[in-house]
C-alpha cells in the first residue's frame, strides 16, 4: 500500500536544519528543558504547498508547527513575511511518562492544520517532552507531500458508506416493455444468480488457506533454519 501511494505523489524536496535544544542558563549545566525546535525550508520549490506531513515519532509528546509565509501578493509585490501557528500542541503521546505513542507513525493533513499551507517560506517544528525520564526525543523519517494521501478512495462498498440514495424511481422508469423479450424479472433473477456465482468465486479465490503445512505431502524436517 505504502509504495503504491508514494508513486502517485513524491515527497517534496526539503532542507531540514539542525535541531536546537532550548537551554536554561549557560551550556555548562545539563538541564533538559524538554523543548527542541528545528526549521525546514524548501529551497528548490516555487510556492511550496503542503497537504500532508508524515513522520515517525521518537518520544516527542507534543508537537507545535509554525509556518512563516508571505502574505498574499498585492499588485505583483511580495507581501511581508509572517509567522502563524499551523498546528498547536498536537498530542502524540497520551501519557508522556509511558511508551504509548512513542514510536507511532503520524500523518498530519489539512484537517489537522489551522489553515492551508501555501506560499510557504519556512516551517518551524517545536517539539515538547515534559517527562524527564527520556534521554532524547526527535522526529524520524520526516516527509512532506503536496496532497494528502489519507483521503484516497475507500474500498468500502457504496451501500455501506452512502446514505439512503434511492434509485428506485430511476430503475422503474428505465424498464420499457419490449415485445418478444421474456419476462424481465425472471431474466434478471437468473442473471443475478449467475452474477452471484461469479462474485462468489472471485471473492473466495485465495483468501482462505487450505490449512496445509506440508509440501506435496512431505514434512520431513531435520533442523530449524535461522533465517
Amino acid at each position: 500500500m505504502a509504495s503504491n501511494s508514494n508513486t502517485q505523489d513524491k515527497p517534496i524536496h526539503c532542507n531540514i536544519k539542525n535541531t536546537v535544544s532550548l537551554l536554561v542558563g549557560d551550556h555548562k549545566h545539563d538541564f533538559s528543558s524538554g523543548c527542541k525546535m528545528f526549521d525546514v525550508t524548501f529551497p528548490n520549490v516555487i510556492n511550496p504547498e503542503i497537504g500532508e506531513i508524515q513522520f515517525k515519532n521518537y518520544y516527542v509528546a507534543y508537537l507545535t508547527i509554525r509556518a512563516k509565509f508571505r502574505s498574499p501578493d498585492f499588485n505583483g509585490q511580495t507581501g511581508d513575511l509572517k509567522w502563524r501557528t499551523c498546528v498547536r500542541r498536537f498530542k502524540m503521546m497520551p501519557d508522556p511518562h509511558s511508551e504509548d505513542g512513542s514510536h507511532s507513525y503520524f500523518y498530519l493533513n489539512r484537517k489537522h492544520f489551522n489553515f492551508d499551507i501555501v506560499n510557504l517560506s519556512t516551517l518551524r517544528f517545536i517539539l515538547h517532552q515534559p517527562s524527564p525520564i527520556w534521554k532524547d526525543f526527535k522526529l524520524e523519517d520526516l516527509q512532506f507531500f503536496r496532497t494528502s494521501q489519507a483521503f484516497k478512495p475507500l474500498n468500502l462498498p457504496s451501500w455501506l458508506t452512502a446514505p439512503e440514495e434511492t434509485t428506485t424511481e430511476d430503475q422503474a422508469s428505465e424498464k420499457p416493455k419490449l415485445p418478444g423479450v421474456p419476462d424481465l424479472d425472471a431474466l434478471s433473477a437468473h442473471l443475478q444468480e449467475l452474477w452471484a456465482m461469479a462474485e462468489d468465486v472471485s471473492s473466495n479465490q485465495s483468501t482462505v488457506p487450505l490449512g496445509r503445512y506440508d509440501v506435496d505431502g512431505c514434512y520431513d524436517v531435520t533442523l530449524l533454519s535461522y533465517t
Binding site: 505513542g101 507513525y105 474500498n155 483468501t207
Partner: peptide, 16 residues
C-alpha cells in the same frame, strides 16, 4: 491515539 487517524480503514479490514 493512532486509531482516530485511521478512519475507515478499520471498517475495510472488518469487511475483508
Amino acid at each position: 491515539d493512532d486509531c482516530f487517524m485511521y478512519g475507515n480503514d478499520h471498517q475495510v479490514q472488518v469487511l475483508q
